[in-house]
């Protein structure tokens, strides 16, 4: 038999679908758009609606988990993220940025059981009362994410480490869905993070006006007019809105602001007496 040359192997490509409720569904609209030659799901308003339902369903249990447990789960995510370093690089993310994203995730993971101590505390009221302020998650957060992987991590991690659940509209679909895969394989309960790919201008208004969304992070909205329109729509149910002034440098120390913006301070009073 003649010795034949080994045929070159055909690669198995990844299909980029949405990440909602811990699953990877196509858009209910059946639409896709092309990104670097890949067909990527083009999310619709109904996908946004479904994602909010998933986020709301997941929220009480996620918030109710112990802070220690949330920290463990998020650290596991960082481990998985590190393991996908090569894949993110192949998507065009610089190695240094992947490293920074992993480090950022670890940084936030560690906040899970500390932020309440920093943001809350006992209040010395002038009377025989125990008085304690403690932060609680705001609820379901709609996030219009910035394009970079570090930016994406820098808006998702502070929201979820504090017990919120998120619906993310991603503008860098492959990296975002890959992050979804990381989350799906790292003990983060389904629905805690939901990733929609598509057009922010199409989906974001539905999140901004949704009665069951508690907060809106506009960090990734480039168009100031769209941002103002979204901010105005968010006023309908008095959502908390994060709108960074301009040009955030995600490599800088983020401080605690991104977490405290998505926390509500609850103050409990109780009398003291025998």
């Amino acid at each position: 038999m003649p010795k034949s040359a080994t045929p070159s192997r055909l690669a198995v490509r990844k299909t980029y679908k949405l990440y909602v409720a811990g699953k990877f569904p196509r858009s209910e609209s059946g639409r896709t758009y092309l990104v670097d030659g890949d067909n990527v799901a083009l999310a619709s308003r109904k996908d946004a609606r479904d994602a909010v339902v998933a986020a709301r369903a997941a929220q009480p249990k996620w918030a109710g988990a112990t802070a220690y447990n949330r920290g463990q789960v998020l650290y596991r995510t960082a481990e998985m993220l590190e393991a996908r370093r090569a894949e993110f690089k192949s998507l065009g993310v610089a190695g240094a940025e992947v490293d920074a994203a992993v480090d950022r995730w670890v940084w936030y993971a560690g906040w899970s059981d500390k932020i309440a101590q920093v943001a809350g505390g006992a209040n010395p009221v002038a009377g025989p009362y125990f008085n304690l302020s403690a932060p609680e998650p705001t609820g379901v957060v709609g996030v219009i994410a910035p394009g970079s992987l570090l930016g994406l991590v820098s808006v998702i991690a502070p929201a979820v480490v504090t017990g919120n659940t998120v619906v993310v509209v991603a503008s860098n679909p492959q990296a975002a869905i890959t992050l979804g895969e990381v989350l799906a394989t790292s003990d983060v309960p389904g629905g805690v993070v939901n990733v929609l790919t598509g057009q922010a201008a199409e989906i974001a208004p539905w999140l901004a006006s949704h009665d069951d969304v508690n907060a809106l992070d506009l960090s990734g909205v480039g168009d100031p007019e769209l941002a103002t329109e979204l901010e105005r729509a968010a006023a309908g149910t008095l959502k908390r809105v994060i709108r960074p002034s301009s040009g955030v440098d995600y490599t800088e120390d983020p401080g605690t602001g991104a977490m405290t913006a998505l926390l509500e301070i609850k103050t409990v009073w109780h009398p003291k007496g025998f």
């Binding site: 009377g127 025989p128 009362y129 009398p271 003291k272 007496g273 025998f274």
Partner: peptide, 10 residues
């Protein structure tokens, strides 16, 4: 019998 809250009754 119902309890009495000290701060409240005072």
């Amino acid at each position: 019998l119902p309890g009495v809250d000290k701060v409240g009754i005072e």
